[in-house]
Simulated scan of single mutants.
Amino acid sequence: MKYALITGASGGIGREIAKALASQGYCLYLHYHQNENSVDILQEQLTNTSTWKVQADLSTKNGLSKLIAEITTPIDVLILNSGSSYVGLMTDMEENQVEDMIQLHLTSTFLLTKSLLPGMIKKKSGKIVVISSIWGVTGASCEVLYSTLKGGLNTFVKALAKEVAPSGVNVNAVAPGAIATNMLADFLPEDIDTLCEEIPMGRLGKPHEVADLVSFLISSKASYINGQIININGAWYC
Rank of each mutant, 00 (worst) to 15 (best):
L112V: 09
D212V: 01
L149I: 08
S10R: 04
S10G: 10
K158A: 13
M1P: 10
E99T: 07
K124M: 10
I230E: 04
F110L: 12
D100K: 15
P176H: 04
E95T: 07
G63R: 12
P176D: 11
D191Q: 15
T51M: 04
D92T: 14
V169T: 06
I102V: 12
S125Q: 14
Y224C: 02
H31V: 03
K124I: 04
M1N: 14
A211T: 05
Y26E: 08
I218E: 08
A69M: 06
P207R: 08
E16W: 00
N154V: 06
A4L: 11
L78V: 08
R15P: 04
Q34M: 08
M93Q: 11
V144D: 11
E95G: 03
V87P: 00
K124F: 06
L67G: 01
K123S: 15
V144G: 14
A9L: 09
C238F: 03
A165E: 05
R15K: 15
G126K: 07
M93S: 10
L204Q: 03
L184C: 05
D186N: 03
N81K: 05
S50R: 14
G227A: 00
V129G: 05
A161I: 10
K221P: 01
K162T: 08
K162R: 15
W135S: 07
A140F: 01
K2I: 13
G14T: 01
L204T: 05
L116P: 11
